[in-house]
Amino acid sequence: MGGIRGELGATWVILTKEIRVEWRSREVWFTGVFFSLLLAVLFLFGLATDAQGSRGVGPGVLWIGVVFLASIAFGRSFVREHETRCLDALRLVPSVCGPLFWGKCLGNGLVLFSMELVLVWLVAAIFPLPGWSLWPALLWVLLLGTLGLCSLGTVISAALARFRLREVLLPLVLYPLIIPLLIGGVKATGALVEGEMSAYWDWANLVVAFDAVFLVLSRWLFGKVIEAVE
C-alpha cells in the first residue's frame, strides 16, 4: 500500500466491509431503530403532558436520542472485530491505522446517521421540531454532530473493546467528552425551532470547529490505542 491512493483504497475497503457486515446482520440498525421508537414513546409519556408542556423540549429529546443511539452503534463496532479476530488480520496490513480509523469512523457515521433519520422523524411526530422547509438545515447539523460523535466514538470503542466492563464504561467515558457537541447541536436545533437563522449558523459553525478538533485529536490518539490493543 503506498501513497494517498493506497490509503484511500484501503479506507474504501474497510468502509465497504463495515457497511456489508451491517447490511448482512442488521444487528445494530434494527436494535437502534427499535430503541428510537421506544425512546420516543418514553419521552411522550414522560414529557409531553400537554401542548404547552412540550414546548422547547424537542431539540433536547432529539439530541439525547442521538447520543443513546451512538452508544448502541459504537458498542458493537470494535467488539465485533475482536470476536471475529478481524483486527488481528487487519494488523498484518502495513500502515493500516489511518485507513482503519477513517473507514471505521465513516462506517459508524453512515449507520448512525441512517438511524437518526428514523429518530428525527419519530421525534418530529411528537415534539415541536422545525417545519419541513428547514429540514435540510436540521439534517446538516445532525450530520455535523454525527461526524464529531463518530470520531470520538471510534477511538473510545477501540480503546475499551478488550475491557471486561466495556458496555458500562463506554457511555461513562463517551458522554462527558461529547458535551460540547451536544450543547452545539441542541442550541442549533433550538435556534431552528425559533426561526433564528443567524444563531443557527453561529452554533452550526461552532460544531464544525469541534468536529475539526475531534477529528485531528482522534486520528492521532487512534494510533496510540491500536498500539496498545496489539
Binding site: L221, V225, A228
Partner: peptide, 12 residues
C-alpha cells in the same frame, strides 16, 4: 493496555 488507554483518555 490499561495504562496506555488511560493516558489516551486523559489527553482526550
Amino acid at each position: 493496555l490499561t495504562r496506555q488507554i488511560g493516558a489516551v483518555l486523559a489527553v482526550f
